[in-house]
Nucleic acid binder design. Structure first.
Lengths: 161, 161
DNA sequence: TATGAAAAGATAATCCC
DNA sequence: GGGATTATCTTTTCATA
């Protein structure tokens, strides 16, 4: 059974909940112009159909001492299936790697890493990253400032005319 | 007044809430081995002191048709303060740009963009990105697969011996 | 089939120890 | 930090359109 399309009210609900998931259903209902029960049922449906994957708190990494964000591009050696598995399981278990992608182009992997400082990051490269199988070369893009950072995705592809 | 350090129980709470913020305070309390009221008070404190910045729902971008993720590296012209402001206000208002950083190195800006498909992304570059002031060159890193993606940050810098 | 009102149940928030 | 109480919100039920 394919999930139905989202209507304007669903989108309003998702927009609000992507910003603040602590709103009560009554508050949400009022903001989107319907009453409590249908609003609650819509949220249930959005969860059931998988539009909403979960609910998390956003923690302030700076307050916890992670002042740096680095995008590390990794060049990989050819790996056996088993080595690849070991590599990605390793990535999964390194908490400072927040995101990891395989990519097109010169490099093979792009990952977002958080670190307290440069010295720590250098140790991280040698003590963690390079210990993973197949890592041949690492090129790091250090961020200077964060101009935008949101977990909210657009709800509908824009049309360019 | 500087915020106190986090103890082991605070960290357990944050770890759990970074994974699932829909847990009730009673459930959290049980999991971390204290009772309801002190657990609730800790959560309030963690919010008050800014360790918890907010609570959001995570939406499935694939289900909404955003099948691509691209890291766009942008080379910028020298800009006046006013132009810079216009640029970053533009970035803020483009919903497909989820993250934007100023970076060290060859390029000046790194941004994470979501897109439905390649054709859309091409139009996006010409209709949105290039319309921003100062954009001289764009190099795109297209992701092939997402091996890891979490909003959960580590709570304590690891020590490498 | 969808809605809204209202009851029932669960949880959050407060109080006192 | 814990236990008990109250206030608030969530979830279910049911009558209605």
């Amino acid at each position: 059974m394919p999930a139905a399309e989202l209507d304007a009210i669903d989108m309003k609900i998702l927009t609000l909940m992507q910003k603040d998931a602590s709103l009560t259903t009554a508050e949400l209902a009022e903001k989107v112009g319907i009453s409590q029960s249908p609003c609650w049922r819509r949220i249930q449906r959005l969860q059931g159909e998988g539009y909403i994957k979960g609910q998390v708190v956003i923690v302030d990494r700076e307050k916890l001492g992670f002042h740096m964000q680095i995008f590390a591009q990794v060049k990989m050696a050819r790996l056996s299936d088993e080595e690849r598995q070991t590599f990605f399981r390793g990535v999964e278990n390194i908490p400072e790697i927040l995101e990891c992608y395989t990519v097109f182009g010169e490099m093979d992997i792009l990952m977002k890493v958080v670190a307290p400082d440069v010295k720590w990051y250098q140790q991280f490269i040698f003590s963690s990253l390079m210990k993973l199988p197949g890592v041949q070369d690492i090129r790091s893009i250090v961020t200077l400032s964060e101009a935008k950072h949101t977990t909210a995705v657009p709800l509908k592809p824009r049309q360019f005319q």
